[in-house]
Computed example of a mutant assay.
Amino acid sequence: MAEKFINIQALYAMLELEPYILLGCLIVIAWVFYKFFLKEATDERHKIIRGHFRILIRHFVILSFLFVTFIFMQSSEAQLGRFTRFTPYVAMLIFIWGNVVFVKTSRLIVLQYMFLGSMKHGVPLLLVNIFSLILSIVLTLWGVTKIFGVELGPLLATSAAASIILGLALQDTLGNLFAGISLQVDRNFEIGDWLEINAGGQKATGQVREMTWRSVTLVGFSDEMITFPNRSMASAQISNFSPPDHPILRRHIFRLAYGTNIGHAKQVLEHAVAGIGDVRGIPAPWSVVSDFTENWIELKILYFIDHYSAQFTIADKVYSRGIEALNAAGIKFARQVVELSDTNPNHGSSKL
């Protein structure tokens, strides 16, 4: 029965000992790569990679059992009798399982290679998934051609119209897919980065949590989930507040009473903000006069921080320390002045 559908001679030729040994060597190479090049990865990343290795080893053990069974059945055809008719099916199962192990091993190697450039935040899985999908399709088409003898050329030619219809139906999906590939190739941001996105009038701020084939997911300051399609992200204006070695500049305003000693007020404010542990000492905080009127002087304090997510907590400390330091130095804050005018020329204006 199996001979009608399967090219048994070609199938058996693929199940030699050499491909099995090469597959085992590929797994060993993946393990050696992990042990020597990913020592500095975080504990969470080590846990993820080891989980992939455990799954891969289980699959290889099952493949080994099937391979040994196949060899036994080939060498014992006379003793097995009618049970030898199951040998082609076992061989087919080994071929499929071997392809699964090969795809998983190749995927793991690519995943580890990408970890080299992003050990801190992790790796977006879109490119890894696309690689696995393409490799699986290639192996499937190759297996269909070699084992079942199906000529794919005429089949692909007659399916051109169906491909056009399918492409039009999946236009948005494919657009998001290729936009996602472009985003990950450009690497303008990574998982864990804080972004401010302005896309078509829609503005959002959050930390990148996930990058899939369809969208980018952010987590906002209130732990809300924000999802942007990849096509929107590709055309959006994106501000990244998490690049390495680039501290984030923040500023706050203090309004002081007119006539305040500006030089003394600057020193007091700069010293107070410099004493906050979350504020960078280099560059040091500095203050400038940003505006003034006849009633108040606007003093702006500028400082650098390292973590965008902590800006509100740090801002609270800056305001609190600044107010306490200015009050302790006897520097008065501006008061709201309201002028009331009377339309009667016999009465003068008054101030409150």
Rank of each mutant, 00 (worst) to 15 (best):
S232H: 08
G200Q: 14
G81F: 02
I29V: 10
V101L: 06
F221M: 05
W213P: 01
D291F: 04
G167Q: 11
I197V: 14
V268W: 00
H347M: 11
W286E: 14
V90E: 04
L166D: 09
P247K: 11
L352I: 13
G200A: 11
F83G: 01
I49R: 06
N261H: 10
L125I: 06
H246F: 13
H307L: 07
P345L: 04
R231G: 09
W213G: 02
P247M: 11
S309M: 10
G117Y: 07
H121M: 10
N240P: 08
T227W: 07
D43S: 15
D342N: 15
L127C: 03
I27G: 02
Q184F: 02
V32I: 08
S136C: 10
V128H: 01
R214I: 11
V28S: 04
P154M: 01
P124N: 06
R250W: 04
L218N: 01
S222H: 06
F72H: 12
P345C: 07
A265F: 05
T140V: 13
L156D: 02
R255T: 08
L22E: 00
V150T: 11
F102G: 02
F33C: 03
H121D: 07
L108P: 00
P124D: 04
I282F: 12
F67W: 07
F36V: 14
L135V: 04
I94K: 00
H264G: 09
R85D: 09
N295R: 09
N129F: 01
K300R: 15
V185R: 05
S350I: 12
S222E: 10
I276Q: 02
I48T: 14
N99L: 06
V101T: 02
E196H: 12
R335T: 10
V90W: 01
L256Y: 00
L135N: 06
F228M: 01
Y258M: 14
L352E: 13
E270V: 15
I94S: 03
V288Y: 15
P243V: 15
L340V: 14
Q184K: 03
A160K: 10
I164T: 13
A257L: 12
A236F: 10
L166S: 14
I165A: 13
P124L: 00
L17Y: 02
G263P: 05
E294C: 13
T217V: 09
H307Y: 13
V68C: 08
K4V: 10
T205L: 04
L116C: 10
K317P: 08
G117T: 12
S235F: 09
Q311H: 08
S159E: 04
F304M: 11
P247A: 14
A30L: 00
F36P: 03
F102R: 04
L125W: 05
I197K: 00
Q112P: 01
G51W: 11
N188S: 09
V61H: 01
R209G: 06
R209S: 09
K332L: 04
F221N: 03
V219D: 13
G192S: 02
T212G: 10
D342I: 07
A162K: 03
K300T: 14
V279A: 07
V289S: 13
W31D: 02
I21K: 01
W31V: 10
G122H: 08
N176F: 04
L302K: 10
Q336L: 13
H252P: 02
L93N: 05
T343V: 15
T313H: 05
K120N: 15
M1C: 08
P154N: 05
G122E: 05
K35P: 00
T205M: 06
I262Y: 14
I301V: 12
